[in-house]
Amino acid sequence: MLNYEYQLEEILDISGVDIGRCMKCGRCSASCPSYDEMEHRPHQFITYLARGDVAALLESDALWQCLACFSCVQRCPRDVKPANLIEAVRLAAIRPKGAEFLTVEEVEAKFAPDMPQQLLVAAFRKYMR
């Protein structure tokens, strides 16, 4: 658990998000185009982190299903920036593996073939040199 405490701190630090501001309105999830694919929904990233359950998020594919379209960030009335938070959780997932970047093989393994191109492009832009 100690490890996760550190990671929680790191996630909040990287994202710059104040999860305490969230008032659980659900505007983020209501705006999310990947909602149905995600095991944990955007608003749950905040509730999970609020109770320190980093493990559930790190182990879930939901992490990789965010399209980074930033609708949630644009519409959140509390300026919580859920997409930034998900991005930070991704980094927390990648960093312990000793690599800052995704490999092509890993990407292929992680993503279903029917996923949008945009998602792959976004992922490459973030995790490839």
Binding site: C25, G26, R27, S29, A30, S31, C32, S71, R75
Partner: peptide, 15 residues
Amino acid sequence: EEDFGVRYIKGQVGR
């Protein structure tokens, strides 16, 4: 809700 059958949904609208 009880007498008039209005449906209250805890959540928000995205679009």
